[in-house]
Design a protein around this nucleic acid. Sequence first.
DNA 1: ACGTACTGCGCCCTCTGCTGGTTTTTT
DNA 2: AAAAAAACCAGCAGAGGGCGCAGTACGT
Length: 697
Amino acid sequence: MIFIIAIVNESDRMEGGEGGETISDIHNYLDTFNKEIQTGDQGPTADVAQVFVDESGQYFYQNVDGTQQQMVVVSSDGGDASEGESGGAEGSVMLNTEEDSINDDGDSLSQSRVALGEDGTLQVIPSMQQGEGNNQVVLNTGDNNQIVTIVPSSTNPGEVSYVLIVEQSSDADKDDTVYDFNEPDEGLSYESGDEDEKKMMRIIHKKSQTVTQAHMCNYCNYTSPKRYLLSRHMKSHSEERPHKCSVCERGFKTLASLQNHVNTHTGIKPHRCKYCESTFTTSGELVRHVRYIHTHEKPHKCPDCDYASVELSKLKRHMRCHSGERPYQCPHCTYASPDTFKLKRHLRIHTGEKPYECEICHARFTQSNSLKAHKLIHTGNKPVYACELCPTTCGRKTDLRIHVQKLHTSDKPLKCKKCGKAFPDRYTFKQHNKSHEGEKCFKCELCPYASTSARHLESHMLVHTEQKPYQCDQCDQAFRQKQLLKRHQNLYHNPEYIPPMPREKTQECPECGKAFRHKGNLIRHMAIHDPDASAQEKAQALKIGRQKRLQLINGQQVEMYTSEVDEDDIMAVDGQDGNQYVVLEVIQLQDGEGHVMMSDGIPVTDTSLDGTGVGGVLAASPLMVPEAITHDAITADGIVDGPCLVEESALLGLQTKKQEVKTEIGAEAKKEAQKEMETCFGFDDEDEGQIHLEFGE
DNA sequence: ACGTACTGCGCCCTCTGCTGGTTTTTT
DNA sequence: AAAAAAACCAGCAGAGGGCGCAGTACGT
């Protein structure tokens, strides 16, 4: 049931109004509205009351709870009103003040009451403002005469489509009535729980003695004091687009819209920026442009942060980052986006679409910026992001950030294992480490031995502790190095072992013309042409220190010397690297090349003496079959000349004499050496017979 | 009816930052 | 030679700027 009250000013009615509205016009409009409601185009139904005509022609005003009030027709306008297009019997009625009002006891009942206030104006009375016995509709016929026009329903006989209340006032022209549809404060207002009802019925009479018109949009909150304005507004709810573009046939609601559109075809942009050369189709675009580019005026402020925007829509978009709202759900995965663009961009993952192509290499990308970054590879105009803390440069800012994170920030200071110094970050730590490069920081506490690596020092310490952790599982032999164990197993326990072929000797001494296969041996040999006295002293100190043994006595670590060594008993071999090698036993070999060997039979070859300071390299020489264990390979100067084998324990830095050397070797060690010398080549092929070992200075 | 100010929506762009895989350099 | 570190690179998402354009409000 529809029940609409519209109030118009009599003067408007009589004069046709500015917009030409007459009662008939209003009827037409309301009737249109009614029809739309009936066809379902419009949702609201005013269930608060209805007016109907009974069989005898009496008009009744009925509330939803069934209570009724009779309305008596006191005059018949018959004129404009009767000419309405509602199609039903129309007439003006005056609400009867005396009628048999039926008790109402519900709020909804009173919601639609129309009454005359003490000031003589027609008012709609909200339930809370109705006093006892005040439930009657009153119409004063004094100076102000309100006529209620009832339009019966065309589809449901006996029902009323709407009621039109027309005020006839002697001073209507002076009317300054304000209808406030949003602030129902001081006036009497109609209130309903239904928002749509409010649209129709909320009328507040504020300060006037008279009632003037209220033109309300039935689709939205729009109201206007002028009928023609409402009429114009109603076009916005219409889908009618009478203004057609001659170019693309597209229709527009307004001529202005069409003109703007046509300008997009013609390229006409009449609005020129006074600050720059930009031109725009509409003045609004120009204003916005000026705000964005020139004045930076940002009227829309975020209440939660400092953000401000030129456009409200941007602020709304921004607010989603505070609220976390993500209205745009991806149909293929759980991702939801705060705006349409991000969703669209995201969807490329699922569609595989890569709209951005590099014209040089035709690589394709999902995002324009990816292409942009990619193109820099071709152009060579790569930006350089230089680290402020070191000389490093990165091609991307984000990579520089990672660099700074990894190299220049550290939770705790990094301590140098070589010298104990602490450094605030990885970069300074690494720089410091370089200062130790080549430096033998890992020093033995028992002898002058020093190494560049802790691992080698650990290995060296086995000498002092007399440990041989690498035990052969097939015999009772044990070794200090894994490589030695492997060689032993090859030689003694692996019948299928085939030693590699010997290589050509290419290193020739410029002094004496002697040839060596390995450069290190040549270097070592060269030392005999220029012996270093200080090196010999160092070697002697090392030799003495090497005799120290650590033993646990009563739970305490005690340093002990294994034997007395006569300084004169030791023979030193000097490499040009400054390292010295003590020869305790020398064996002449067939290939004529000098190989200093350890007790385990490992021959010292070229790079062992290459002066790098890294450490000697011991290499197996497969065809270096020992002819005999001889001391003759040592020259008169005490220098090894030619193939020889040296006890591991003899790799010390002191000079000795060949006869005494033998006495330095324990009987057991000598026996072991003898045995190993016979099979001094036993490394696997893949090892190439090389293991790394450091020599103390 | 016309002109203009203004609004809202949509599109595209840029900048930014994070992530993870790949390649290069260093150890 | 291999492992680790560093640098490089593509993919992707968050946030915001700027503009095109249709539509609305409103004064004249």
